[in-house]
């Protein structure tokens, strides 16, 4: 197994080296004519207004939150899903343990999803239910 992981390590290293090498070799090929106008960021041809580092729609944060829960679920269920086949193949009926367990897990998570869905948090542009909610 360590051999396999060394392959991963070497692949990642080689790819980083490829990027670095290409950029380094490009240094001898490409022009370098610095200019304050070129160093400006692009804002449709206008002079950039202020910094780009401001706060954005917090819904992205919510999506990441929901994702983490599902990510943890994926990480937990994949090993179980891997062995589920072997359990089902057993003749002593223990396969149903695997089936029921995964089903229960899914149902609970789906309940969570349904709650979020029902609260309307999955709608990107939430509909305003009353005029008082208007900003």
């Amino acid at each position: 197994m360590h051999f396999e992981y060394s392959v991963v390590l070497i692949y990642l290293t080689v790819s980083a080296v490829i990027v670095g090498l290409a950029l380094w070799l490009g240094r001898f090929l490409r022009p370098n004519l610095p200019d304050p106008q070129k160093a400006q960021i692009y804002e449709c041809g206008e002079r950039p207004i202020g910094s780009a580092w401001f706060n954005f729609n917090p819904r992205f944060y919510l999506i990441a939150l929901v994702f983490i829960v599902f990510d943890a679920e994926i990480a937990l269920t994949f090993p179980v899903a891997t062995v589920a086949r072997g359990w089902i193949a057993r003749s002593d009926g223990t396969g149903w343990v695997a089936v029921v367990e995964i089903l229960l897990f899914f149902v609970i998570l789906l309940a969570a999803l349904a709650y979020v869905w029902g609260k309307g948090e999955l709608d990107w542009s939430r509909e305003l239910t009353s005029p008082e909610e208007m900003p």
Partner: peptide, 15 residues
């Protein structure tokens, strides 16, 4: 952007 005219509650956008 902050809408200047408050949009009416739109029933047609409901499912």
């Amino acid at each position: 952007m902050v809408p200047t005219v408050p949009p009416a509650v739109s029933p047609h956008r409901r499912p």
